[in-house]
Computed example of a mutant assay.
Amino acid sequence: MRPCSLPRLAADASQDDLDRLYAERGAALVACDAARRLAVETLEVERGLVDDWLDGRPR
């Protein structure tokens, strides 16, 4: 439920800073997407277990 944190470019950044930040930001986006997918998968499994329990079906 917490938002992802993405690196930001400083106002006085150099070209090297921009290049470094580009890679860091890409890695942060990949990590954020992986965390989101894991959270969604966990929620789906949890809801399935609750539904099965309510229906009286063991899993």
Rank of each mutant, 00 (worst) to 15 (best):
D52G: 13
A34R: 14
C32K: 07
P7I: 13
Q15F: 09
L18P: 00
L54W: 10
S5I: 15
E46G: 06
A27K: 15
G56S: 08
D12W: 10
A31C: 10
G56W: 09
V45G: 00
A28N: 00
G48V: 03
V45S: 05
D17A: 13
T42F: 04
R37N: 09
E41Y: 14
A39Q: 04
R8H: 10
L6V: 08
M1C: 12
E41N: 13
M1G: 14
G48F: 05
T42P: 00
R25P: 00
V45N: 03
Q15A: 11
R2S: 06
A11L: 13
L29V: 15
L54C: 08
L29D: 05
L49Y: 09
G48L: 08
Y22I: 02
R59F: 09
A35N: 01
E44L: 13
E24R: 15
R36L: 15
L18D: 10
A39H: 06
R57W: 00
A13G: 01
L21D: 03
R25N: 06
D19G: 05
A31M: 12
R8A: 14
W53M: 05
G48I: 03
L54S: 04
A27H: 13
L43Q: 06
A27F: 10
R57K: 08
L49M: 15
R20D: 07
E24W: 12
L49G: 09
A13P: 00
R37T: 14
D33H: 15
R47F: 10
Y22W: 01
D12M: 14
S14I: 03
R47Q: 13
D19H: 06
V50P: 00
A13F: 04
R25I: 07
A11D: 11
G26D: 06
E46H: 15
A28M: 03
T42C: 04
W53P: 01
R8K: 11
G26N: 09
S14N: 00
G56H: 07
R59A: 10
P7Q: 13
L54Y: 08
D12H: 14
A10K: 14
E41V: 14
C4Y: 02
R2W: 02
V50S: 01
L54R: 13
L29C: 14
G48H: 05
P3R: 12
D19A: 11
S5F: 15
R37Q: 12
A39F: 04
D17K: 12
R25G: 01
S5Q: 14
L9G: 01
R2Y: 01
E41G: 11
A13K: 03
A34F: 12
L49F: 10
C4Q: 03
Q15I: 08
L6A: 01
D55T: 02
A27S: 12
V50F: 05
E41R: 14
S14C: 03
P3E: 12
L43D: 03
G56D: 05
A11T: 11
A13S: 06
